[in-house]
């Protein structure tokens, strides 16, 4: 998923329109957090999904598969919300709660909408572009440098992780819990050493090229008209209006 999302962010139809897409996603996020969740959740989920899949051309399978992992957290915690727990006569009293189920429904819809917005952002805005937005917003340089360096390391180390795990798996390194724990520790130690070696080699290479203390990255060229910003702002405003109308009508 790591590579698929990153590759999609660099190749989708909107990759050169990061400004309006970021505005669109920020608007949708405000809408889903601020408007009545029963209406805003499904509306924002649909808008973000349609925008990502049909507008930006994000593969539907990637977009919807990415939602499966958070669904596990959602189901577990929703179960906890549906149950009430009180203390009476020195003991614990458990029961089912209609109010808790109602909260779980509202929270689930809000979370689904917000998750679709984040995935829409992650699949359409390349890292260099959102870092440029953060730099423009005044984020500290040290933090931005760290973000960029971590980003550069991720894929190299992930390749190493896959190679190590494949080799361990081929040697039956995960056949029991005890052996699996030892194999995982070996993989983590090897990855740590590789990350140190990689940092040392990167430092030497950059020093040879006159590196001082900055790693500037050119953001992708932008091809944006004012109309794109207007449309990016109008859709969340319209959805928020609709969500509040439906919410008050109930």
């Amino acid at each position: 998923m790591l590579r698929a999302i990153d590759a999609c962010a660099h190749t989708n139809r909107w990759h050169a329109r990061s400004g309006p897409v970021a505005l669109f996603c920020a608007g949708l996020m405000l809408c889903v957090l601020g408007a009545p969740p029963l209406a805003a959740g499904p509306l924002v989920w649909a808008a973000a999904s349609v925008a990502a899949v049909m507008g930006a051309g994000v593969p539907g399978r990637l977009f919807f598969d990415a939602m499966l992992v958070p669904a596990g957290f959602l189901l577990t915690s929703a179960a906890a919300l549906c149950v009430t727990l009180g203390f009476a006569d020195g003991g614990v009293v458990l029961g089912l709660s209609a109010a808790g189920a109602w909260t779980a429904l509202q929270t689930g819809l809000r979370a689904a909408g917000a998750l679709a917005v984040t995935l829409c952002f992650a699949c359409t805005v390349p890292t260099a572009a959102w870092m440029a937005l953060l730099r423009r917003a005044g984020a500290p340089e040290a933090l931005l440098d760290l973000i960029m360096l971590v980003y550069r390391m991720l894929f190299v180390l992930d390749d190493a992780r896959l190679a190590i795990l494949r080799a361990q798996d081929n040697r039956l390194g995960f056949r029991t819990v005890k052996v699996a724990l030892r194999s995982t520790a070996r993989a983590a130690a090897a990855l740590f050493l590789r990350s140190l070696q990689r940092a040392a080699r990167l430092e030497q290479g950059l020093a040879a090229r006159g590196y001082t203390d900055r790693l500037p990255v050119l953001p992708p060229p932008m091809a944006v008209c004012p109309g794109a910003y207007a449309a990016a702002a109008a859709v969340p405003v319209a959805l928020a209006g609709l969500a509040f109308t439906i919410g008050f009508a109930r």
Binding site: D145, L146, M148, L149, V150, R152, M153, L154, V156, L157, S195, L196, R198, A199, A200, L202, E203, L206
Partner: peptide, 8 residues
Amino acid sequence: LLLGAAGG
């Protein structure tokens, strides 16, 4: 670079 590696 070391901290970048630690984050990665």
